[in-house]
């Protein structure tokens, strides 16, 4: 009974992922944000933003690397102890493939670290950076 339930959940989850995920790609998103910003994404600026220490956000999270760590090909950890899959596209090809998720996490995490939402230019920089490593 229990196993059947777990199996059904897994099947449903897989189906849900296949429907939602894959509605976009890192290249598509990069293009979109570059168009909005009117500049091209820079891996160097992305690295500076991602690994830099900021002061505008919540005190416990001064940098993206607070949770994602500086080893972006490895796993990170939330402050509550949950594993975060690698951010580098080379280590985790499924990054930036779901536009709703990308929007949600950019919104939340930019507010948490910077205290404001990221500009399209900054988003393009971050995607360019994470695609380059």
């Amino acid at each position: 009974m229990k196993y059947r339930h777990v199996l059904a959940t897994l099947v449903a989850a897989t189906m849900a992922t296949t429907v939602v995920a894959g509605d976009t790609s890192p290249a598509q998103l990069l293009k979109k944000f570059e168009a909005q910003a009117g500049t091209s994404g820079s891996p160097e600026r992305g690295r500076a933003l991602f690994t830099g220490t900021h002061t505008g956000g919540k005190p416990d999270t001064p940098s993206c690397t607070t949770c994602h760590t500086t080893n972006l090909k490895g796993r990170g950890k939330t402050r509550a102890g949950k594993v975060i899959e690698p951010m580098a596209l080379s280590a985790n090809p499924s990054r930036f493939s779901d536009s709703a998720k990308v929007a949600k996490w950019f919104r939340r995490n930019c507010r948490t670290v910077l205290g404001r939402e990221c500009t399209p230019g900054e988003k393009a920089d971050v995607i360019a950076f994470l695609s380059s490593i």
Binding site: K58, P59, D60, T61, R79, A80, K104, R107, R108, N109, R111, T112
Partner: peptide
């Protein structure tokens, strides 16, 4: 949720 134990977790 926008200040959820020190993080933005808005939905």
């Amino acid at each position: 949720l926008d200040n959820h134990y020190g993080e933005d977790a808005s939905l």
